[in-house]
Write a protein that binds this DNA or RNA. Structure first.
Lengths: 333, 333
DNA sequence: CTGTTAGCGCTTTCAC
DNA sequence: GTGAAAGCGCTAACAG
């Protein structure tokens, strides 16, 4: 406690001199760093930037900062970055997915602060995990198409990694249960998975192309129609792909949803405004980021909930592009 | 120099113990931090994530890491973050735009390491700036529409800040030069600018709405057509807005480009795949991020180029949505 | 309760 | 050349 006058004068001096506390020294002296290390596989896909928004918003009221790393979907890079970040003694770590290398996992397990995996689900998280089931997402999307009366349902994905292969397996399972699975109806450009058996289609269905583009969507529809002219619906690995399929349908004069049902993935903003609007699987990206940091804050404050696996779920947002059965009158925006 | 054997044994011990150098201590002892502070106003707009990609890619071969902050387009938050980041003694700073508060600018000027402003241009940068002219972008887009024969050219923007108002002024200037400027043809939802006089339209043209959405694009086209039925073209503040305009044109049966010319902004991937494909102004977002860190690396290595203002330019990518004059045969993809 | 001092784990410098 | 010692700017634990 000092006099307000002195307080004022000190503050003034501080401002004049331009004094800034050295946070490195502070971090070294105390053990707290107030830094959360965040590792994402990509900044290209808006999906991870939505997660980041949630993280930043959740961290806003705290004094925690973000140290962000981009692994570029590369195991080795992830391992390097985890090592580097851990050397910074962060207050917590957030990493994407569940496919860490054994060495990476070990480092993270030895780390004595909260570690949150995000964007996927497993019974055996490093510490805690908050995400949703990709299998369930693919399954629900495909079931929706089946219920709408579609029978020749394709799948399109620019590239297949561990998470999208989960969606793909959901697609396959739903079709197998209905007895209408056809492995020819998968259009996949690039497969990257540590376990190739994860991808439930024959390699003959693959062809090269860029990763995740609307142009690919157009191409996939062409390809699948060539293989199976009766194709009447598509579940797309992302919304941009779905938009591409829609554009190609427009260009070919195929009516959507009557002649072709389309389901996107992620439910990004653009799909609700297209004409016709697109059905899409809503993924809780923002919520995942927010929840991850909320859990971190809880643990750091000592009021740990103890929940290790947090499934935030997905939801099929039904719009005009799959309204085959219903009358469309008044349904479109 | 030690024997390979000993080297091996030490490495083994290091791995077993799980030793990690404490980077805070290192930062404190040396003055080098190997951290680049990056401040962006938003992570929602993919535009800044493209910049980030450039930054990360440019930093890849170095040992520099990124400390990322999100100002949410808030001056006060920017000031807070600059102070906080500077306390970390980063090796360099990257900040977005040129509208820093005086106090923020002063802190950055006193900082003795490279400071790069990005995404805009000014003759008077804090240290260096790499970007492009938003005025030129708006001017070129509008000139292109005029040259294609359009005469009632509207402008649409979810929200107008310092940079988009530059585009808007370019739009206005081009129309004034052609003697066809009509202030009624601006559809703008939210204006946020320190200098309201920057926005070259009457306030009556504003109405509320979400920031940057395809649904807004649809609404803007409706609004402008109501105000001026002869409207025959639109320059949109971003590609998603342009997509919304295209969807609304579809829905209303307006032919694009014959009845309505559309130009987007940023040239994101999706516009080249739409049907018809959309003309858009390509902005060098990735290149800006890359160049910014290349400049930083140059300065840190002591081989400073001395260039303070780096204009990376923009380019109108002409596609089907503005091909009014030419024959369209064979032009569309 | 205030003022002092001993480190935090490195890098750098200075003797040897 | 190698090895010991002196800080970097703070925080925390101590004594007054």
């Amino acid at each position: 406690m000092v006099s307000p006058d002195l307080r004022q004068r000190v503050a003034k001096a501080v401002a004049e001199i331009g004094y800034r506390p050295n946070l490195n020294a502070r971090a070294l002296a105390s053990i707290r760093t107030n830094v959360v290390g965040v590792l994402v596989p990509s900044l290209t896909q808006h999906i991870f930037t939505d997660v980041l928004r949630g993280i930043y918003d959740g961290l806003q009221p705290t004094k925690l900062r973000v140290l962000l790393g981009n692994t570029h979907y590369d195991d080795a890079e992830e391992e390097r970055l985890v090592g580097e970040f851990l050397g910074q003694k962060p207050s917590a770590m957030i990493v994407s997915g569940i496919e860490q290398r054994p060495a990476t996992r070990k480092m993270l397990e030895q780390f004595d602060q909260p570690v949150i995996q995000i964007m996927d689900l497993t019974d055996d998280p490093i510490d805690r995990i908050v995400g949703f089931s990709h299998f369930q997402a693919g399954y629900l999307a495909t079931r929706h198409l089946i219920e709408q009366g579609y029978r020749h349902i394709g799948f399109g994905a620019g590239w297949v990694n561990q998470r999208s292969s989960g969606r793909m397996k959901g697609w396959r399972r739903a079709l197998e249960e209905a007895g209408i699975f056809n492995p020819d109806l998968a259009a996949v450009s690039i497969v990257q998975s540590t376990r190739p058996e994860d991808v439930p289609v024959a390699p003959t269905n693959k062809h090269l192309g860029e990763s995740t583009s609307a142009l690919n969507g157009r191409k996939y529809l062409c390809d699948l129609l060539e293989r199976e002219p009766r194709l009447d619906a598509m579940f797309c690995n992302n919304d941009i792909l779905a938009l591409g399929v829609l554009f190609e349908a427009h260009a070919r004069g195929i009516a959507v949803p009557e002649g072709l049902g389309i389901v996107g993935f992620n439910d990004t903003e653009v799909v609700s405004a297209s004409h016709p609007s697109l059905t899409s699987v809503r993924t809780p990206r923002y919520e995942i980021g927010l929840r991850a940091v909320q859990e971190i804050i809880k643990v750091l404050e000592g009021r740990d909930g103890g929940e290790r696996v947090m499934d935030l779920g997905v939801q099929v947002m039904v719009r005009a592009s799959t309204m085959k059965l219903e009358t469309l009158a008044g349904q479109e925006m």
